[in-house]
Structures are given as structure tokens and as C-alpha cells.
């Protein structure tokens, strides 16, 4: 039977695209649910190629002192990764107090001509880079009051996620595992609990090592994944970026499709009836 002989309703169903609402952050919609970082790359070129291959539309940056004595003719990160083309997400990496984090966001806003979207992270410990959630909450409250659109990095504590949402954060970003560890989603149950309560986008931030980790986050129902080291430290960052793009998309589709139930024992796929042996 050729395809033209199929009923019209079948043809329509086959050409239907997967229905999904795009990710919306601060009134802007994004087709990609992947956010990547700009740290640890060998150079700007490697970073830009990875960004293109990942399909990401949002990229994080850090705010640091200008290196005085550096050639001012040399391109800076934002000359290569254009704020006109991509959404730049300044982070507060390296901040251990609410005060430093707020100050960093204010500098970022000035630097990016009034841009209000920030990634808040207040760290508590140098070895694990675990978030200091009490300082994070203080900073979140101040930043929201000051008009910032806050995406907040936090632990995978379901109650903290609620508190941060109540504080007015527009996205809550629990860790899957410590920053840069590549250990994957260590506690999927907590991520599920966070998702159950959430009214804002939940984006796994930190811990992803390979594509399957990103898929797991998306299959759980997360709205996106933020990663840096998994791509930057891959032997071939461009290829890993492409793998992550597919993993995010397939994980999302699997979530939307709805998984089959888990069973302890087998369930035959071929019918028993009609067996002639």
C-alpha cells in the first residue's frame, strides 16, 4: 500500500509535530531547553562552536575584574558571543555572601545595559561548591525587590525550592550533583518532589556529565538543563554539545510521551493466542 492510499486522518497524524510549549523565562520564549556555560573552554572559538552545536539560546558568563595591562584591542567574550543573538545570563559564581552576589548582579546589569536576568548562586563551601541556601534566599529576596529576574541555583531540597519560588525567583535550578563533578542526577526522587510542587520552571543546574544524564533530567519533567563542564571538558566539546542537544530533545519528548509502567516481571509483546506450536 503506497502512502497516498492511507486515510487522510492517518496522514495528518503522521505529519503532526510534537506539541510542546516553549520554555518561557522573563517573558521571552526559547526553543532550546539547554543552557550552556562559557567557562573552561580552550578559547572563544571552541566556546562559540559548542554554543552553535548545542542549539542553546542562553549562555552564562561570570563577572570579574578587567585584567589591566591586557591589550584592549583583543576581543572580549561578548565581542565573540553576541548579546544581540544570545541571551547572556550573568552568574554570581564565586560569591559566598548575599552581599557579594547582589553587588555582582548590579555590576552585571550595568555591564549589560540594564539586562535584568541573572543566575544567582551563593556558595557555602569551597570543596563541594554546595550552595549556602540561607544566604541564597536573602540575596534572592533583595534582587527580586531590586527588579531583577532571578534564576536561582540551589540544592535539591524540595522545601528550599518552594521558599525560593515564594521569594519571587522566576526559575529554580537544583543541582543534580556538585558543580563540575559530572556525577549525573544523584537524587532523582528529590528532583521529582521539587517538580511536583513547582509553578515556575525547574532547570537542573550542575552535575550532568554525559548526554544520558541530561535525558534523565528531562524525562523527570524538568523544564531545562544548565551545564558547562560536561561540554567544555569533553575531548570534543562540539560533538558533546550536539549530543546534549539531542539528549535534551529526546528526554523532553519521552517525558511528554509518558513512560510505560515499570514491572517486576516480563510482559510478552507477541500474543500467545494463535500460536501454532
Amino acid at each position: 500500500m503506497s502512502i497516498s492510499a492511507l486515510p487522510e486522518s492517518w496522514k495528518a497524524a503522521m505529519s503532526n509535530n510534537i506539541v510542546d510549549k516553549p520554555l518561557n523565562l522573563a517573558g521571552k520564549t526559547y526553543n532550546s531547553r539547554l543552557i550552556i556555560g562559557s567557562g573552561k573552554y580552550r578559547d572563544f572559538q571552541e566556546n562559540l562552536i559548542a554554543l552553535e552545536k548545542s542549539g542553546a539560546e542562553i549562555i552564562t558568563v561570570a563577572i570579574r575584574r578587567v585584567n589591566l595591562g591586557q591589550n584592549s584591542e583583543e576581543p572580549s567574550l561578548l565581542d565573540v558571543i553576541s548579546p544581540e543573538k544570545y541571551t547572556i545570563l550573568p552568574n554570581t559564581a564565586g560569591c559566598y555572601t548575599a552581599r557579594d552576589a547582589v553587588r555582582t548582579c548590579q555590576m552585571a546589569r550595568e555591564l549589560l545595559d540594564g539586562h535584568k536576568l541573572v543566575k544567582l548562586e551563593v556558595l557555602g563551601d569551597q570543596k563541594t561548591l554546595y550552595p549556602n541556601v540561607t544566604e541564597t534566599l536573602i540575596a534572592a529576596e533583595q534582587l527580586v525587590k531590586d527588579g531583577f529576574d532571578v534564576m536561582v541555583y540551589t540544592s535539591d531540597d524540595p522545601l528550599m525550592a518552594i521558599r525560593l519560588e515564594e521569594a519571587g525567583c522566576l526559575a529554580v535550578m537544583p543541582l543534580g550533583a556538585p558543580i563540575g563533578s559530572g556525577l549525573g542526577i544523584r537524587n532523582p526522587l528529590n528532583i521529582r518532589l521539587i517538580l511536583e510542587n513547582a509553578k515556575v520552571p525547574i532547570i537542573v543546574d550542575a552535575g550532568v556529565g554525559v548526554a544520558s544524564d541530561a535525558s534523565i533530567a528531562m524525562e523527570l519533567g524538568c523544564d531545562g538543563v544548565l551545564m558547562n563542564t560536561a561540554i567544555a571538558e569533553a575531548k570534543n566539546p562540539a560533538l558533546m554539545a550536539s549530543a546534549m542537544k539531542k539528549a535534551i530533545e529526546s528526554g523532553r519528548e519521552a517525558f511528554l510521551a509518558g513512560r510505560m509502567p515499570r514491572r517486576l516481571y516480563a510482559s510478552a509483546s507477541s500474543p500467545i493466542d494463535g500460536a501454532f506450536f
Partner: peptide, 10 residues
């Protein structure tokens, strides 16, 4: 005086 810029970070 503090002069800052955007650099690579995650």
C-alpha cells in the same frame, strides 16, 4: 575603583 567585565563562567 573596580572595573569588571564578562568572562567565561558556568
Amino acid at each position: 575603583i573596580e572595573i569588571v567585565q564578562a568572562i567565561g563562567g558556568g
